[in-house]
Each structure stands twice: as C-alpha cells, then as structure tokens.
Amino acid sequence: MASILIIEDELSIAELERDYLEIAGYEVTVASTGAQAMEFVSNKNYDLYIIDIMLPDMDGIDICRNIRRTTDRPIMMISAKDSEGDKIRSFNVGADDYMTKPFSPSEMVARVKVKIERYSALKLRQTVDYDTLQYKNIRLDLDHRRVYVDDTEKELTVMEYSLLAFLLEHKGVVYSKEELYNIVWKGDATEDSTTTVAVHIKKLREKIEKNPSKPTIIETIWGVGYRIGEA
C-alpha cells in the first residue's frame, strides 16, 4: 500500500483529502505544521507528498525544498493563491504538480494515482534492458533513469525526466502544452496545467541547454508548441 504525507493546517481540507485517498486505497498521514511534517519525514520516506504552501510555522516552499533534497518521490503543492509566482517557485524547488483551492478531491486522487504509478514504472525500468536515448550532447540512460549532458550527469525531477524522455522518444514531432500535459501528466489540460508544462520546459532548458535563452535542444515552435529535433 502506497503511503502519502499530507501537510495541511486546515483540518477540514486535510480530512477531506485523507478520506478520499484512503477510500482509493492509500495509507495517509497528516501533519498540521511544518515542524511536525519534518519530524515525520525524518522517520519515513513516503511515496508521495501533498504540501499546502501557507502553513502557520513554515513556508510550504521551504518544506518542499527540504524534502526534495532527500528523495525523488513525487511532490504536489496545494494553495489558495492562484499565483503564477507561487507555481514557478514551487517547480523551481522540485515540485511535480500544483493545484489551486478549491479543487475536486476526485481530480486530486487521479493525479496522485498517476504520479505514484509513473514513479513505480520508472523505477521498474531500472531492472529491464532498454536502449539509451540520445540527441546531440544529451543522453538518457533508461536502465538507470539518468540524464547526461556532455557526459556530465544532471539531476532531474520525476516529471522533468518524463517530459524529456517523451520528447526524445518522439523527435521531430511538435506537441502543444495541452497535448504534453494530457500525455505526460495524464490529465485534462487547464490554464494551471499549461503553466505547469511551460515551467517544466524552462527548468529542463536551464539544466540541459548551453544557453537556455537560445535553446537548441527543446525548440519552441511559436503558436504551436515544443519539439526536440527535426522530423
């Protein structure tokens, strides 16, 4: 049974999230403060983390940053603020997803399910013999889920890796933000989700491009979307 840590100070929201996730078959722990959350994290590596940005004692962004330093498990941020700045800050410190309150509990469960399954599948691939993916100076070692730029290993989040692998597997094909979210995140595209894709593309470019402001690996096809390489 996959385990989830919810970090949320609003009791009614925490209980709603917990109830829906437990019905879906997950083991759920709730922390109402940042300090309590960090104590739980020090004793257990959960399969997924759901973090509210606004907590009484700590910034949820800082909690996300601290957790990301110790694990590559999926992290979802929750906030009542529909701020692009908060979304970008969340992704910059390693979050994999961002949901704005109020949200559908059923959609939250669906996102959790996809992220845990994708993480498990990526780990399973380490035991299977796969070819590497390569384009220019970028190489993906699919056996061990590692990315190299000029033979230097780069650290990517789960979703950054999934996005890069998908684009490399479909070199030359242009995908819109909506299509990438539907395929890679396995969800229905919204305004929030297209921002999610754009931020992940930006972070990928910062990690793999020689000059992120003039990308030569992940190209922007204006008015259409993104691609890697020519058809």
Results as ranks from 00 to 15, higher is better:
residue 82 D to F: 04
residue 201 I to N: 04
residue 173 V to Y: 02
residue 148 Y to R: 08
residue 130 Y to N: 13
residue 175 Y to F: 15
residue 152 T to F: 08
residue 184 V to T: 03
residue 100 T to P: 11
residue 157 T to N: 07
residue 184 V to W: 00
residue 195 T to Q: 11
residue 153 E to Y: 03
residue 84 E to C: 04
residue 94 G to F: 00
residue 159 M to R: 04
residue 100 T to I: 15
residue 169 E to K: 14
residue 140 L to Y: 01
residue 119 Y to C: 04
residue 146 R to I: 04
residue 159 M to S: 10
residue 170 H to K: 12
residue 168 L to K: 05
residue 196 T to N: 11
residue 193 S to V: 00
residue 166 F to I: 07
residue 176 S to K: 04
residue 117 E to G: 05
residue 154 K to R: 13
residue 170 H to M: 09
residue 202 K to C: 07
residue 103 F to K: 09
residue 162 S to Y: 02
residue 189 A to H: 01
residue 154 K to W: 03
residue 122 L to W: 00
residue 87 K to L: 15
residue 180 L to T: 06
residue 119 Y to L: 06
residue 164 L to Q: 12
residue 170 H to Y: 10
residue 145 R to V: 09
residue 162 S to L: 10
residue 128 V to R: 12
residue 177 K to R: 12
residue 198 A to K: 10
residue 143 D to N: 15
residue 99 M to D: 04
residue 199 V to Y: 07
residue 89 R to Q: 14
residue 175 Y to N: 01
residue 81 K to N: 13
residue 141 D to Y: 05
residue 84 E to F: 01
residue 113 K to V: 06
residue 140 L to V: 09
residue 158 V to Q: 13
residue 87 K to M: 15
residue 97 D to R: 01
residue 193 S to T: 13
residue 121 A to Q: 14
residue 164 L to M: 10
residue 93 V to M: 07
residue 160 E to P: 09
residue 136 K to Q: 14
residue 177 K to C: 12
residue 176 S to H: 05
residue 167 L to I: 08
residue 169 E to D: 13
residue 129 D to A: 10
residue 180 L to Y: 01
